[in-house]
């Protein structure tokens, strides 16, 4: 007898392991540092609060800052996409819809990351 009778009617896609939660937790912990630095750097360092145009350009032209912000962008996007996926999976989609969800979220995340890198690069080269 199958040991998973509750899955008997379910297509095979449901039977795979899924440890994306772990990635969600790891990116979450990374975000603690990345996000804290991002917030402090952008809200509380420059005199008067938020950075003006010149401040932003100066900030991003620092190579370390540039890399740091790109890493932040990637990690936060992955975490956000996985979070949305997790909420959508809780709605019990069919395997087909689940594949669509995965595809669309991957595309959106890739688009957001590419756009962010492009944006940072343009800003940086205005310095």
């Amino acid at each position: 007898m199958s040991r998973q009778p509750w899955l008997e009617d379910a297509p095979p896609a449901y039977r795979g392991g899924d440890r994306w939660w772990l990635v969600q937790a790891i990116t979450g912990i990374l975000l603690l540092v990345l996000l804290a630095v991002h917030l402090i750097a952008n809200h509380f360092i420059v005199e008067g609060g938020l950075r003006t145009y010149q401040d932003v350009v100066a900030y991003l032209s620092h190579p370390f800052v540039f890399v740091w912000e790109i890493v932040f962008l990637i990690v936060v996007t992955v975490h956000a996409a996985l979070g949305v996926r997790s909420i959508l999976l809780d709605l019990g989609p069919s395997p087909r819809v689940e594949r669509i969800i995965n595809g669309v979220l991957t595309l959106l995340a890739a688009a957001a990351i590419s756009y962010g890198i492009w944006l940072s690069w343009v800003i940086r080269s205005q310095g």
């Binding site: 040991r3 449901y14 039977r15 795979g16 392991g17 899924d18 440890r19 997790s86 809780d90």
Partner: peptide, 17 residues
């Protein structure tokens, strides 16, 4: 191991919030 394999799924122990 088989029991662990059964709960190690997207709708097993990893689904819990």
């Amino acid at each position: 191991p088989e029991i662990l394999a059964q709960v190690d799924t997207a709708h097993g122990c990893w689904r819990c919030h």
